[in-house]
Design a protein around this nucleic acid. Structure first.
Lengths: 328, 328
DNA sequence: TTGTAAGCGTTATCAT
DNA sequence: ATGATAACGCTTACAA
């Protein structure tokens, strides 16, 4: 910038003004522009933020569970869409569901001067962010609510989605509906179980299933037990896949109804097509970013909680009616 | 840091030394550590980089085609693994295959002071990066090679993967093998077509198919034409899915063999299972990051090109032998 | 409108 | 080993 000023024959301040479109004599502005292009000058964003009044860096940080997980990468995409429109850059990282990593990442981002933080929480105590917020960093939580700190959150309507699944199966005539769920200490897993229990039977629940193999075993247990369910609801992606394998192993894919939570790719190619309660991760990301930027622009209303609805996609497996064989 | 110095009763320089583990009297160091934790001080990475000799920021930027595409998000993950081990943060963004966006992102990252750039190129002229490289920014290209600039690249063995697919089908007895490909101006699409043409027939090729619907039409055309192929190779993910729908529509899933390039999720649940030539995107990312950090650490050998092999995963569809009906 | 100069939080140089 | 101080590239009072 010093060089630009020298070449254009103006002061440092004038170059800064031109670069930040502060009104400047058109003649001088022209000279500066010429010098800028001639020297290929680009302003150092880090240094600029350092001195700026609000210390803003036009960057935010996002802590996801796993950037490579399609659900979270879709959230990432939603965030990116709205950040891009504002020329804001994104630091991203995966916590792998490790509270210590979540913390490290969030604080590293903060140390690098981000204006805001979007977090898919892994930890259960977010008081460590109190200081960042006091420093003016905006905070939004996604998919899971913050704990021990007050902050905005954008969540999926987990309970409502499962209630819809139950209602859908009930309407098809099912009376015995099984439920396969993830580790119950996980917020979303607990919420979904809650949605099931509103009208479901506790004895047909298998929780704390992690991974598709566990789900397959859980499903086999349920289906081979006495008085087996005529329909299954799976609380998560991988569990749905496990249940699919179990049904196939027993030759029951056309007999027992199945509704999965969270869409699965190629759900339409499998036979029968897999009926799911789909989430909208891109919307989750978009809402989170909008909340974040609103805070950055001065909105200081009380913490908000946005709940994104789910959508039931009927593809066949959820529309199977209870067979006579099973009902007997 | 000023405050820490005051509280600890030492100079600014000493605090800086403690923070950067430069040898310091243990007593003073202790006092500084106390002050640091008491005040909750954390060093400002941006300001530190500004003054540091090598101006390093412990951050890199990656320009992907689309962060939400499972292939690229796996690349992202591979990059993250090795960056995390070095405490390096990652700016990420999607170019959506738009050369202008690629450029904007790369230059924005650079303006924010990244030490290196990993790029999945969308553009066909990367001379705009010459200046960044001259400024000491390391450059590595992934999945597609750089153009009009010399730089490291990490690529999949596209041609080799398709050659393997052809050999696999030939070994199963097929003589007429069709090929469905993406837009031929895309580097990877051209390479894969090249792999096919080594032993394939030009008349059975359908290129410039974008999206699964186009692939479905292309496949139907080939399969309903005179002297149809007994096997199909699909040059890309979505094309494989389109072909799958076409085969299902014609009731030929068990008659016509199919090998897809790039793995598809749930490839094992569809009947028959989908045989694919799988890429290793995580390895792509890991290699790229390793190359980048080697450059950052001073390696100035000539630009390298790393080729990552593919792996054929047999799941059924590629092992179908030519039926009599088709062969007649 | 333009220039001068102070200062953002840090590291590096140079005495001590 | 420690401290005073200049400097990094930039924005922003304040003065002209």
């Amino acid at each position: 910038m010093k060089d630009v000023a020298a070449v254009a024959g103006v002061s440092l301040a004038t170059v800064s003004r031109v670069v930040n479109d502060v009104p400047v004599d058109p003649v001088l502005a022209g000279r500066v522009q010429d010098a800028v292009t001639r020297l290929g000058y680009r302003r150092d964003a880090a240094a600029a933020g350092l001195r700026r009044a609000n210390r803003s860096s036009a960057s935010i940080g996002i802590v996801l569970d796993d950037v490579a997980n399609p659900f979270f990468s879709a959230v990432h995409r939603g965030l990116e869409e709205v950040a891009r429109a504002r020329g804001v850059l994104i630091f991203s990282g995966s916590s792998d569901d490790d509270p210590a990593l979540e913390r490290d990442l969030a604080l590293s981002f903060s140390a690098h001067g981000v204006d805001g933080l979007v977090i898919v929480p892994a930890g259960t105590d977010h008081r460590y962010l109190e200081r960042e917020r006091a420093a003016g960093i905006a905070l939004v939580f996604v998919d899971r609510p913050p704990q021990r700190i007050l902050a905005d959150a954008v969540l999926t309507d987990n309970a409502g989605g499962v209630r819809d699944a139950v209602a859908h199966l009930l309407a098809a005539g099912h009376r015995r509906i099984g439920y396969l769920g993830d580790r119950s200490h996980i917020f979303t897993a607990a919420e979904r179980l809650g949605g099931y229990l509103a009208r479901g039977e506790e004895s047909l629940v298998r929780m704390d299933l992690v991974g598709s193999e566990a789900a397959e075993r859980g499903a086999l247990e349920l289906l081979q037990g006495p008085d087996p369910p005529t329909a299954l609801i799976c609380g998560q992606n991988h569990l749905t896949i496990g249940a699919l394998y179990a049904l196939r192993a027993l030759g029951l894919e056309a007999e027992v109804a199945l509704v999965g939570f969270d869409d699965i790719p190629l759900g339409g190619l499998v036979r029968p097509g897999v009926t799911v309660v789909a989430q909208d991760p891109v919307a989750l990301g978009r809402h989170a970013a909008e909340l974040l930027f609103a805070r950055l622009e001065g909105d200081d209303s009380p913490p908000r909680r946005i709940v994104v609805p789910t959508r039931l996609i009927a593809r066949g497996s959820g529309e199977i009616r209870p067979s006579d064989r099973m009902r007997s």
